[in-house]
């Protein structure tokens, strides 16, 4: 391949990478939950880190007896590594400590799906998910 062809190819790939990068991070996932939250409640007024923190720290009785709270496995501080009940380390939940958190919608949905049921005994709403991510993105 000639030098010119390399440059053209490089510029093309670079051009593609920009919008991909812009959509990376937690914004893309949050945008999806925002759309769902508005659909569920037209009066939706934005996500709240405060409500997210309350959800993280809340103690619940409707879920599994060993998992009343997010902090049961993730510890009281999302900046610290947690541990599963089976003894495996969990990377911190805070985005500042684990930048890849909430960047993949399928993975995010998988874990909300499982853990909302395990901890709360029910599914989480789009607003709760967005609040939670907003809280953990701002630590």
């Amino acid at each position: 391949m000639s030098l010119k062809a390399w440059i053209v190819t490089g510029a093309f790939i670079g051009g593609l990478a920009v919008p991909v990068l812009a959509a990376a991070g937690q914004d893309a996932v949050l945008a999806q939950y925002k759309t769902q939250a508005i659909a569920a409640d037209p009066a939706f007024a934005g996500f709240s880190a405060k409500r997210g923190a309350e959800l993280y720290k809340s103690s619940n009785s409707a879920g599994g007896p060993d998992t009343p709270s997010c902090s049961s496995c993730h510890t009281a501080s999302p900046l610290k590594a947690g541990m599963t009940r089976a003894g495996k380390a969990i990377e911190p939940m805070a985005v500042s400590a684990s930048p890849s958190r909430f960047t993949d919608i399928a993975k995010t949905e998988k874990w909300f799906g499982r853990n909302c049921k395990t901890v709360l005994g029910r599914a989480c709403s789009a607003q709760e998910k967005g609040d939670f991510i907003t809280y953990l993105s701002g630590l």
């Binding site: 599994g64 007896p65 998992t67 089976a86 998988k110 499982r114 049921k117 395990t118």
Partner: peptide, 11 residues
């Protein structure tokens, strides 16, 4: 897997 030793491990 939805009831996996006290956890929901659904896939």
């Amino acid at each position: 897997l939805a009831n996996h030793f006290g956890e929901d491990a659904s896939l």
